[in-house]
């Protein structure tokens, strides 16, 4: 692998790994707070799946970079060095808002994982192969919730429609294709992100319509997470996530 491909791949692994880490951390914030015990367990399980997948990808990133570890990447980078999409760092809000975010991201991640199984970069293909079944379950879980919340009571419908409207502006970024994306797709390592858009849109439109929810009209899409330009929420999240490791840098347990 030549030097520039390796640099691109490092950057790409940060995007993928940071998405999973951040969404996993957000879901873990529900632990002990979900509306019912069984759902508390379900959300914690999905959080653990995401953090587990993220740690594999960040291990890969650390190996590509050399002289660092996944833990160092996670606990000692500033928000500006994080490469996750803006969608996953948005606060949990109410239960509907968490589930809408989870559906939007989960479906994207499921489609991506499906493609990455045939990556020519075998370590990545291996991670995707292992993650694929988990992502299938995540989509099932959030889809079933969307149907029940959207087509449930007047209150659950209005809360989920509001969440769809608020989070829609963060979905465009998932399918942005840049130089890194194109170069890696050219080498058969990844797929161009924009190639996932049609299927995501089709399945999302179908699900929202079954859930009696309205797909927002085309509007301005936020962007910047892949270049380190984050909403203010990521910094607050990282402060909490990183404090122990930064206060006691050599701590072991």
């Amino acid at each position: 692998m030549d030097r520039s491909t390796q640099d691109y791949l490092f950057e790409y692994c940060l995007r993928l790994g940071d998405d999973l880490l951040v969404v996993g951390h957000r879901l873990s914030e529900w632990c002990g707070h979900a509306p019912i015990l069984e759902e508390d367990i379900a959300l914690a399980n999905i959080a653990l799946d995401c953090i587990g997948q993220g740690s594999f990808v960040l291990d890969l990133a650390a190996a590509l970079k050399g002289a660092t570890t996944a833990d160092r990447l996670v606990y000692f980078r500033e928000a500006i060095d994080y490469r996750n999409c803006l969608l996953v760092e948005q606060p949990n809000g109410d239960f509907a808002s968490t589930l809408v975010r989870q559906f939007f991201f989960g479906l994207y991640h499921h489609l991506l994982t499906d493609r990455l199984r045939s990556s020519t970069y075998l370590p990545l293909a291996g991670i995707a192969q292992k993650a694929f079944k988990e992502t299938e379950y995540h989509v099932r879980h959030s889809s079933q919730w969307m149907l029940r919340l959207g087509d449930g009571t007047e209150e659950s419908h209005s809360r989920s429609q509001r969440a769809v409207n608020d989070l829609w502006q963060f979905t465009g970024e998932l399918f942005e294709t840049d130089e890194i994306d194109s170069a890696l797709a050219g080498a058969g390592i990844t797929q161009r992100s924009e190639s996932l858009r049609n299927e995501w849109m089709q399945r999302t439109t179908d699900l929202l319509s079954n859930a009696t929810l309205t797909v927002p009209a085309d509007s301005f899409m936020q962007s910047g997470g892949r270049r380190g330009k984050h909403t203010e929420h990521l910094g607050h999240m990282l402060a909490e996530m990183q404090i122990v490791a930064r206060s006691f840098p050599e701590a072991t347990w």
């Binding site: 367990i41 379900a42 399980n45 099932r140 079933q144 029940r148």
Partner: peptide, 20 residues
């Protein structure tokens, strides 16, 4: 045992609580 609003979620919750 567990609580669930319908059969689909009873299965999903059973998977999360008893089958993981």
């Amino acid at each position: 045992s567990l609580r669930a609003p319908d059969a689909e979620f009873a299965l999903q919750n059973a998977r999360d609580v008893f089958a993981r």
